[in-house]
Computed example of a mutant assay.
Amino acid sequence: MIEIGGFGTVLLFIVGGLGFLLVTLLVGKILRPVNPTAEKQTTYESGEEPSGTAWGQFNVRFYIVALIFLLFEAELIFLFPWATVFGDEELIAQTDGLWARFSMVETFVFIGILLIGLVYVWARGMLEWVRPKPKASEFKSKIPASAYKKFE
Rank of each mutant, 00 (worst) to 15 (best):
P134E: 12
F108L: 04
E39K: 04
I64W: 02
K133P: 13
L91H: 09
I113W: 03
M1Y: 08
K135M: 11
W99M: 12
A54S: 09
L98S: 13
V119W: 01
I14N: 07
F13R: 10
E90S: 12
K150D: 05
W82G: 15
F151G: 00
F72I: 04
T37I: 01
F20A: 10
I77K: 10
E48C: 03
F69A: 15
G17W: 04
A66K: 06
G87N: 08
L31Q: 11
L25K: 04
V27N: 05
L67E: 11
K140W: 06
A74W: 12
I2T: 13
K150E: 07
Y63D: 15
K150Y: 09
V23I: 07
W55P: 03
W82V: 14
I64F: 04
E48R: 15
P36S: 03
M104C: 03
V85S: 08
T9D: 15
V85W: 06
V85C: 02
R131A: 13
F108I: 01
P134L: 10
E106G: 11
G87I: 06
R101P: 05
G5E: 09
D88W: 08
G112H: 03
L31G: 08
V23C: 05
R61C: 06
K29G: 14
G28S: 13
I113C: 03
G6C: 14
P33D: 07
E3A: 13
S137A: 07
P132T: 04
K133V: 15
E128V: 09
I77R: 12
W129C: 05
A136Y: 11
G16D: 00
E152T: 07
G8E: 03
F20P: 01
P36D: 02
K40H: 01
M126S: 04
E152A: 09
E152Q: 03
L127Y: 00
T107A: 09
V10P: 06
G125Q: 00
I113N: 00
Q57L: 13
R32Q: 12
F80G: 12
T43K: 04
L26M: 06
T53E: 09
F102L: 13
G28C: 09
G17Q: 06
G52V: 01
A66C: 12
V10N: 07
P33A: 07
P50T: 05
I14D: 05
M126C: 01
Q41W: 03
F7K: 15
W55V: 10
G87H: 01
A93K: 10
W82C: 14
R32V: 15
I4Q: 08
R32E: 11
L91W: 12
F139K: 08
T42Q: 10
V65F: 13
P33M: 00
M1T: 14
F80T: 14
P81N: 02
M1P: 11
L114H: 08
G17I: 02
L12E: 09
I116E: 00
